[in-house]
Design a protein around this nucleic acid. Structure first.
Length: 570
RNA sequence: GCACUCGUAGCUCAGCUGGAUAGAGCAUCAGCUUGCGGAGCUGAGGGUCGCAGGUUCGAAUCCUGCCGAGUGCACCA
């Protein structure tokens, strides 16, 4: 049970007793106080004052005078038009620390989503294309949403949908088939090669309509699984999938089900045929469409006039496949916001076809590099691997500088954790609807509000605990703590379950990164000013060590949701 | 032109469904180490919350209009 929630319930009960029956308590009535010195939770008296025809500040004094601090509360004070409540370290603090100590890795989890199956589609990369930094936002966002939903008790099934057969593949194969050179063997070089060939094909076909015709014919052949380039498709597809899986593994992504666009062609055609019979799919300008003008969504173009299927058509099939495979209560699709209209069209089209299920497009804005825009048509695309290697190198250098005595393996492991944490944190620590500017210099600096800062704080805590020796943790000793920094820490620890809840409800992992950062700042404040192992008072020392243990635990739990791996030393 | 998203400090961003003096990181300046890890901590300067109305006891937050930026709008994915 969430201790903060219990405390809020108590305050609302007490408020009702003090105000009277006309007051209908709601969790929204309690706001956080602006400053720890003013209290922990605040009740604004404006509404009640108005109802009783009294000035709000008088109302606040009156209510405060009627209330007595007990149970979770240590003090109640009127301040202006607010009644401020101070939570007690003796009761609230001890209980929070006890809960964390007892629940361990489950602290922060709840079962709100029990029995609700959610299918999360993400990591929809393409074959025959390289992975670049923009994709990372999708991968990390998807991963953290999956673990957030799991932490809230949902039955989560992650899947990906890979486009292994589309116009881009046909174009790429055309360029390769014209290439007299020998394709590279190295996995990375192969991806760069495929990307270059694709860019070449786009350039040529834009200038020459005949080339466009040839590529279109290749596409038609592939859809029917025939033609001279089929073996090349199979081979290059295998290169790509091998590479993509290497990336997914490296990033620790979880994927339970795998869908491929090449498998959607047949079912898509069947759905279209059925749609034609129903009169939902109609012929227009040589193409097959679903008219969504009445929904103000334009037209959903399914089949091009050259007879090949568009991505929109195959998405219809995917929806049917996912439904029959998994029977989810809710579908989340993590795709960037440029496809917002496409998804609105998809959902409206499904509805017209009689497929009414719950779908949400979890959109996010694009990633740009501070150094310049990302464009797949240009050669300056920041490749995922290039960024990763740059980060790894920087992390190795700084780790080596700090630990001349470490083995190469030690340095490598820690540098790996630091580099990947830096990447993940940067990609997640922002509202997903806002365009993200990835600043390599900033990411490499590892200072301030960054993943490495959180890791560093965690490592310092481990160091303190190691120094303290193997002492039994005594949660009840936090009752002895008097400093505002210690109290602030208890509040942050107590509100962690609420953050896990809210972050999942809003599909907003940045609420979690923010909370963890704030927790680290609060700990650093305490660490800088107050002795822990060397505290003179035995109880205070035990209380602070208990705090170290539970802060450490909450950081681990948060890291785990975000996919960040803490290190004990760095 | 229409639609969606965004406009908060020099820069990058918080500010959850309206609540007290709008916060953090970076950058700038000034400090802190014979102390548990300085990838840290403390302090200072820096804001007409794009603009104008409206709703409300109360608006960065909700509504309307305008301005600006990004993205999308039939054969790319």
């Amino acid at each position: 049970m969430d201790v903060l929630l219990l405390a809020k319930q108590q305050i609302l009960r007490d408020l009702k007793a003090a105000i009277g029956k006309e007051f209908a308590p709601s969790m929204d009535d309690l706001a956080p106080a602006p400053d720890v010195a003013m209290g922990d939770l605040a009740f604004p008296c404006f509404a009640v004052a108005k109802a009783q025809g009294k000035p709000p500040n008088e109302m606040a004094s009156e209510i405060a005078a009627k209330m007595n601090p007990k149970e979770y509360l240590v003090d109640i004070r009127a301040a202006g038009s607010y009644v401020n409540f101070f939570l007690s370290n003796q009761t609230f603090g001890v209980e929070v620390v006890n809960r964390i100590h007892e629940e361990g890795e489950n602290y922060g989890s709840n079962d709100i989503g029990k029995g609700i199956r959610v299918l999360v589609e993400y990591a929809n990369l393409n074959t025959h294309k390289d992975v670049h930094v923009g994709h990372l936002r999708n991968l990390f966002l998807g991963f953290s949403l999956i673990s957030l939903l799991k932490a809230n008790g949902y039955d989560v099934i992650p899947c990906y949908y890979i486009n292994d057969l589309g116009a881009h593949v046909a174009a790429c194969l055309w360029a390769i088939s014209n290439d007299r050179g020998t394709p590279p063997v190295d996995a990375t070089e192969r991806m760069v090669y495929l990307g270059a060939k694709y860019a070449e094909a786009v350039k040529t076909s834009e200038a020459d309509a005949r080339v466009k015709e040839v590529i279109s014919a290749i596409h038609r052949d592939l859809e029917e699984m025939k033609g001279p380039l089929l073996p090349l498709w199979q081979e290059t597809r295998a290169w790509s999938l091998e590479y993509l899986h290497k990336v997914y593994d490296e990033l620790g992504l979880v994927i339970d089900r795998k869908y491929y666009e090449s498998e959607m062609i047949k079912p898509a055609k069947e759905i279209i045929d059925e749609g034609i019979k129903k009169g939902v799919v109609t012929h227009s300008q040589g193409a097959w469409i679903i008219d969504l003008e009445t929904e103000k969504l334009g037209v959903n173009l399914l089949v091009k006039s050259d007879g090949t299927l568009l991505y929109n058509a195959k998405d219809l099939a995917l929806a049917y496949e996912k439904e029959s495979d998994v029977h989810p209560h809710r579908n989340l699709i993590v795709v960037d916001d440029r496809q917002a209209l496409v998804f609105k069209q998809l959902f409206a089209s499904l509805k017209k076809l009689g497929h009414e299920k719950e779908y949400s497009h979890i959109s996010y804005a694009h990633v740009s590099m501070k150094e310049g825009a990302i464009s797949s048509r240009k050669g300056n695309v920041p490749r995922y691997e290039d960024l990763r290697d740059k980060l790894l190198e920087a992390a190795q250098t700084s780790t080596r500088d700090r630990h001349a005595d470490w083995t190469d393996a030690q340095v490598r492991d820690v540098a790996h954790a630091i580099a990947f944490t830096a990447m993940r944190f940067t990609m997640l620590d922002q509202d997903r609807k806002k365009a993200l500017t990835f600043d390599t210099q900033k990411a490499l600096s590892f200072e301030g509000r960054t993943g490495p800062y959180l890791l560093y704080t965690y490592a310092r805590i481990q160091s303190v605990r190691k120094r303290a020796g193997r002492e039994k943790i005594k949660p009840e000793m936090v009752a002895a703590l008097k400093d505002p920094a210690e109290h602030a820490l208890l509040m942050l620890l107590g509100s962690y379950p609420d953050v896990v809840r809210t972050a999942a409800a809003h599909y907003a992992p940045e609420l979690l990164t923010l909370h963890l950062f704030t927790l680290c700042q609060a700990f650093s404040d305490l660490y800088g000013r107050l002795p822990i192992v060397q505290a003179e008072d035995k109880d205070v020392r035990a209380g602070r060590l208990a705090l170290c243990a539970v802060v450490s635990r909450v950081l681990e739990n948060g890291f785990s949701i975000l996919g960040m791996k803490p290190v004990r030393e760095m």
